[in-house]
Design a protein around this nucleic acid. Structure first.
Lengths: 244, 244
DNA sequence: CAGTGGTCTAGACCACACA
DNA sequence: GTGTGGTCTAGACCACTGC
């Protein structure tokens, strides 16, 4: 007896028996169990659609996600293969500092240290591909969790990309949140590293000189135009966490 | 004059004028330019389909990706809204150490330091939710880029989840690559932090005691069953990079 | 040239959650 | 109840690329 094609998807929940999730799970299982080892050619979408008794679109969606996760490689005409080098991808969520601090239950406090308008130093010009003598706003500030320094932010903003930054003193709002509100941006690059605190940074973060600090750098563009570069330093107790 | 609906998508490339990518770009533009500010209700898929002159499926795909990227929030019946807290998400690619080293042009070399079978120490049992007195394999090893130590790996493998780890000496193959080949896994958690090298680690990595090190920790599960915990320490020159 | 994936369409049914 | 998103279908055209 044949029922509506979606009958059991509607009634059974945890182990799905239908739909692109089920297809994806089954394909993944064949790959993980080495039925289809690394480099193995996977049947075409049309063949799989016939095997699973679903439309090609359903197979396509399952394979699309697998390709997106780096599990398989797909090329027109060549077909789909199990990826040979299992590059794991993790989604990294990067919230605003304030949100991150408040999520721990602590009170957020912002403190401006300095704000200057100057011509971009050479290293910054190189990093942001700025014209020589470009004007930038340099902001240094601290983010506190309760009474404890949590993050020191050293930020440079390209005046050409954000002219009205000249009107903002950053006394009550931190540069990150101001930028989020003021400037759309399209591309960003993140870098993470370990460093050690020099005397200045140590004093700002309330640690000892030479202590390890976790450093996150962010560069942001609006199209081709560089917007901002920020270097954020955390006490070494900070951990950045991500799940797959 | 009306042409085939896909006519210009086929001929114009860089700025697409049709298709879900164009829809996505247009929606994104309205959000970034504050035409639709944070929290604003976005028209329903049906309405947007009419406005753009495409099928609802096309709108759905565009909105699906925006939701996936955290740009919008979607709920049945309630509709779609521009996300209020702009949580940025970055995709972090985590390749095998060997691949990472070879990508720099350096020669990869692996060196086993120790391999022991023992009962899990308490901190490990807590982290992996192991039964008391669970047997684990503890592997310590170094990954070299040329003659330079690149990464120190301190790994614990749950024997119950991977029984045949008892037969592997890890003399020629490193534990990471062996595991990738031997065990499927479903969930992983990553953590990144800055630390400082104790005397042992400093000697292994060829740095000075107290120097900052970049630490990446990975915990892996197969379903509910914990598989492995690894702590990887890099010289402080290491940078982990990611783009949006 | 021809096979494969990429995408679109028009229509449909349903789950869900709000009213 | 009812509107919205989530998903599936069957069919179609096309881009890409290996042969």
């Amino acid at each position: 007896m044949t029922l509506s094609p979606n009958f059991d998807r509607a009634t059974v929940n945890p182990p799905e028996r239908t739909g692109y999730r089920a297809v994806k799970a089954e394909l993944l299982s064949r790959i993980r169990s080495r039925v289809w080892p690394a480099g193995h050619a996977i049947p075409s979408e049309v063949d799989l659609a016939a095997e699973f008794g679903v439309a090609r679109g359903t197979i396509n969606r399952a394979m699309l996600e697998l390709a997106d996760e780096g599990v398989i490689d797909r090329r027109r005409k060549a077909g789909s293969r199990v990826a040979t080098s299992p590059v794991r991808q993790a989604k990294l969520e990067i919230p605003l500092v304030r949100i991150e601090i408040e999520a721990t239950g602590a009170t957020y406090r912002y403190e401006l240290i300095s704000r200057d308008v100057l011509t971009a130093p050479e290293w910054l010009g190189a990093r942001l591909s700025l014209a020589t003598k470009s004007k930038v706003v340099h902001v240094r500030c601290l983010h506190f969790a309760g009474s404890m320094p949590f993050q020191f932010e050293d930020r440079w903003i390209n005046v050409e990309a954000v002219p009205n930054v000249l009107n903002e003193r950053f006394i009550t709002i931190n540069p990150n949140e101001w930028l989020v509100d003021a400037v759309p941006f399209t591309n960003a690059e993140f870098a993470f590293a370990a460093s050690s605190a020099d005397q200045d940074l140590a004093q700002l973060l309330g640690v000892s000189s030479g202590d390890p600090v976790f450093v996150a750098e962010r560069t942001t563009w609006l199209g081709e135009k560089p917007v901002t570069f920020a270097r954020m330093s955390f006490r070494s107790s900070y951990r950045m966490v991500s799940r797959i």
